[in-house]
Design a protein around this nucleic acid. Sequence first.
DNA 1: ACCAAAACTCAAAGCGCTTTGAATGATACG
DNA 2: CGTATCATTCAAAGCGCTTTGAGTTTTGGT
Lengths: 348, 348
Amino acid sequence: MNLKELALSLGLSQTTVSRALNGYPEVSEATRTRVRQAAEQHNYRPNTRAKALATGRSLTIGHVIPVSTKHEMVNPVFADFIAGAAEVYADNGYDITLSMVRDADEAAAYRTLAAKGAVDGIIVHAPRTDDPRIALLSELNLPFVVHGRASDVTLPYSWLDVNNRRGFQRATEFLVDLGHHRIGLINGLEHLDFAIRRRQGYLAGLSARGLDVDPVLMTQGEMTESYGRSAARAQLDLADPPTAFIASSIIVAIGARRAVEERGLTLGRDVSIIAHDDDLSYFRNDETVPLFTALRSSVREAGRRAADMLLAQVAHPAVAPQRELMEVDLMVGRSTGPAPLSAARRQG
Amino acid sequence: MNLKELALSLGLSQTTVSRALNGYPEVSEATRTRVRQAAEQHNYRPNTRAKALATGRSLTIGHVIPVSTKHEMVNPVFADFIAGAAEVYADNGYDITLSMVRDADEAAAYRTLAAKGAVDGIIVHAPRTDDPRIALLSELNLPFVVHGRASDVTLPYSWLDVNNRRGFQRATEFLVDLGHHRIGLINGLEHLDFAIRRRQGYLAGLSARGLDVDPVLMTQGEMTESYGRSAARAQLDLADPPTAFIASSIIVAIGARRAVEERGLTLGRDVSIIAHDDDLSYFRNDETVPLFTALRSSVREAGRRAADMLLAQVAHPAVAPQRELMEVDLMVGRSTGPAPLSAARRQG
DNA sequence: ACCAAAACTCAAAGCGCTTTGAATGATACG
DNA sequence: CGTATCATTCAAAGCGCTTTGAGTTTTGGT
């Protein structure tokens, strides 16, 4: 059933039917309800493609997934973010399309996306420090919101980020105040902006407490469970091992915890761990006393807000770029405790 | 830049330019290359919406995510499946759209999807035993492939599934053969077909080895880490606790392992665990000797194959429904061992 | 009863593409 | 040199919708 047929069956013109359905005022309430009922009854839905062509808006938001060797798509953080965003899209009648893009043809892919006219806006994931996508998208004149920031980009653009720097500084100071002097950072990949900011926060925390930096205590990698384990393992094997870790995600922390226990050490006593906790649906760290002491910030909520920002921008492209910085909460759980005496003593 | 403008700039008709770009034979090689170059130079991409309208094909596949209280979207299994499927789509020029659908308006949502004409085909996730979606989609005449099966549906339809029943039977027998007599099943939600099949396999395994079923050793829930922990905990608290668990996913197994260790028990000695391992990118269980003894079956590969099936069906809607059953491998890792003597003795 | 204003309704154009059916130009053959 | 054949190219219709600009009917004031 299409508009034409529906109009015919009602003895009305397409114009009137279209207007009735889309809530235009120049149609009488009587006909409007008549049309609505008929549409309902025939299960009529306007064809998306035709509507998009006629209106110039596709009611679709694109999420571009970088596909290098690493598959960002399967990052659970990403999944939760999209789930949050999708709630907002659904409430506003928007669909969501995923594009997998290889790093190599990234620029071309974004150009294509814009030229094809398949989306009204884009969410940019996993920005790098000087991410060229931002300039590109600005030039293409396609509304976009960055999840995270690109520190070196000076152009104005909309972003939503977590205060990673402050959070990691706080976590570091918290551990130092517990007596830890050797604190390992198990970070995400440091070509990504968020990881750099986290490292900065960590360094700032050490510096604020007058501690030196030891490069061997800083690790970066893709945030899988087994990376968490192997990174923690390697650091625990050092001659002068850390007594605490800061892990860039709950999943990494789970891996680190495994390494700790494989060494026969007890979490929260022999070794402390603070995790950045994105409040992932499948990895809730929310028991009465949480397992992990954590910097909590819901990535799902971030997805919702980013989507809100983007839709606002799609509706009013002229307004200035928005920014939003979400603060993190430090939740004390069972994975942290005072530095073991031996270590404290050794440090003098 | 659109077709009309491009054609104008070349002094050709839209027809010729369109044909040149789409590889039709009735255009000379000379003009074809000329057109190609001009298109390249002007960064021309045909407008998706217009093309879709004209051809009647949207070059888009829909994945419908059930959103009840539980958000299937954020299930890491789901994410990996989509990642696999997306590879295939990308290679074939297809895009992928996600629809979040509340259980309540499920039927309406599928009808809408079909009527809107936004997708050429659909992948159905998380089928229930007598899933009404299958009849609905057949009636709507929209190509679809089910990831999993709906045991009670008699209509022919395309599906791709893992041999859950056989896998779980095998795992159960493996544990019994190690001397375990009380084996806990930590299953997924049993309104889903795969979970029912897994339970059937578990029961068949017990029965094949002449063991009785104890209902308190069978748990179901959404497959999160904390569910794994609490389910294992509860079973370990029983007067006659299990000496082994079969966990429906690696994530659940991680939770179960946590429960085991919180009890001061040693994995693989005091308590054994076998996990169903979907080979998730962020939870690789692939060390030289894997942590978990596991039934392995790559869900990413499943995604690829399901996408292949679906695209084949979109291309040739007439052919009979396809089915594919993937077998699982039992990989022996460090999480299983002989039943502890005390338990074995107690059983006589 | 008359006319301006308001309330409805409509035909037709247009969104950017594909595709049909026809026209043109070039080539070959008798 | 005329005609049949093939190779190119094109104008125009159509995909299903929105929207413009115009037409028709009602309403209300005088």
